[in-house]
Every structure is written in C-alpha cells, then in structure tokens.
Amino acid sequence: MKSRFKNDIMLVSIILVVALILFLFFKFSLKTGDMVVISINGETAFKLPLNTDTEKTVKSELGENVILIKGGIAQIISADCRDKICVHHEAISKSGETIVCLPHKLVVVINGEEET
C-alpha cells in the first residue's frame, strides 16, 4: 500500500513536470516565432521567419520589391515603385510594425506575440 502511494506521488510529479515542459515549450515557441508576413493587395503572399536571414524578391503585376531579413530586422532594400517611400522606410523588427508600398499594394508586417 505504501509503495502504491509512492508510485502515485511519482506519477503526479511526472505529470506536473511534463505539463510544465509543455507549457514552457508553447510559451517559448510563441516568443521566438515572429514571422515576417508579406501581403499583396490584402492577400498573404509569403511568411518568413524573422530569425532566418534571407533576401526575398516579391513580384506582382504592379512591380517588384526586394525584402531583406537580416539579424532579426526586416526592410525593403529596393523597389521599382514610383515614390520609393517603402525603400526609405526604417527597418522593422517589433510585432505590429509595418512597411507599406502604396503603389504596389504591398505590406510587410511583423507578426508575433505582443502586438500593436
């Protein structure tokens, strides 16, 4: 009887530990899972992880924008739009921050846990 009680305690402890690990895992994966979401005319075109350096050329019938993700920040480094406001825009990294290219109807937004 005594050993069964001990076993039960053990089981409860294991369950608690597993639950804790799962909980932390979810929290952790959400925190580091910031994505760079690129949409054209309201439709999501690409989702890229913010923590992976990459250069993406996005083409549509309206034109072309080159998005650079490097060191946890994203920016538009070149575009053939007429005003170039998107290229002059500062790099973004925090959830909710956006860069808009109005002539190309393109939005780059950081999607993560804490939003604006």
């Binding site: 369950i15 949409s39 005319n41 309201g42 939005v107």
Partner: peptide, 29 residues
C-alpha cells in the same frame, strides 16, 4: 484522482488558447 488531475493539467496546457479572442488584420488599397 490522478486521472482527473492528469486530464485537468493537460487541458490547461492544450486548451489555454481555445475560446480566446484572436487578433486579425485586413489590408486594402
């Protein structure tokens, strides 16, 4: 009791996100 405890804990872990409000965004031009 253990079974209940297990169910309860797991449900806490997994359904923590259910029934919650989510943030959506729509862009238009």
């Amino acid at each position: 009791a253990i079974c209940l405890c297990l169910t309860f804990l797991l449900s806490l872990t997994f359904t923590g996100c259910r029934e919650k409000y989510e943030k959506f965004t729509d862009y238009s031009f």
